Computed example of a mutant assay.
Amino acid sequence: MPAFQSKTFRRTTSASSTLGEKLGALYRARLPRHPFLFFGLPFITVIVAASFALTPAAALRYERYDRKVQQMSKEEAFKLGLKGPDGEEGIKRNPRRRVIGDEREEYYRLMAKDLDDWEQKRVKRFEGEPDGRI
């Protein structure tokens, strides 16, 4: 008698086999013949379905963030100079320089500047902040 049997071991099917085991065996038997149908298509379907399922969750996240950023009490708005105590507009801040004319005039004004004659200046650092000098 040889050390190993020549027959391959196969599990005997019994009445006690569950439906899951039967489906698993059927799936494993058909997977090598049709790999895209039994593996690729379900995979792509799950990815696309998850994308549609997670879209509302992502929208809720951004809406919640927007609500958090937009909420401001009247006192905070007054302190920042956005609105007065009665709700009217607060301090109007003037911009540094207004653009006068149209875009072409502004373009030619900027082009007339001498960009070759400039001097590099270091920015003053805060106390204890490294300035990058060795």
Rank of each mutant, 00 (worst) to 15 (best):
E21K: 04
P85Q: 06
E106Q: 12
M72S: 15
E105C: 01
K68G: 15
K121W: 07
L110R: 09
G101N: 03
K74Y: 02
P56M: 01
L41R: 04
E63G: 06
E75F: 08
E21C: 01
V48E: 10
T45Q: 13
F78A: 14
T18C: 01
E21G: 06
P95D: 06
Q70I: 11
A25E: 12
I44H: 03
G40E: 05
I91D: 06
G90F: 03
A77V: 02
N94M: 09
D114W: 05
L37R: 12
Q70E: 09
D117G: 04
A49S: 14
R64V: 08
E106I: 02
I44W: 05
K74L: 11
T55R: 11
S51V: 08
E89G: 10
L80Y: 04
K83S: 05
D86F: 07
A77K: 15
R61W: 14
A57Y: 08
R93V: 12
L80A: 09
R28P: 01
L31C: 13
G24E: 15
K79N: 10
Y65M: 10
E119F: 08
F36G: 07
K74V: 03
F78G: 03
R96H: 05
Y107E: 06
R33W: 03
N94G: 00
I47Q: 11
E89W: 04
F78T: 14
K113A: 05
P42L: 05
A25C: 01
F78S: 10
R104S: 07
Y65K: 12
S14K: 09
K79Q: 10
I100W: 08
L110K: 09
E106S: 08
L26T: 09
W118C: 02
G81M: 02
I100N: 07
L80F: 06
S16M: 11
R97T: 13
M72W: 10
H34S: 01
Y27K: 04
L26D: 12
K68Q: 14
K113Y: 02
E76H: 11
P95G: 06
A112H: 04
R104W: 12
P42T: 02
V99M: 08
R61I: 12
A15V: 12
R93S: 03
P56I: 05
R104L: 15
G87A: 08
F43G: 07
I47G: 01
F36T: 12
L41G: 00
I91Q: 10
L19N: 06
F39Y: 12
E106T: 09
F43V: 13
F38V: 00
K68C: 04
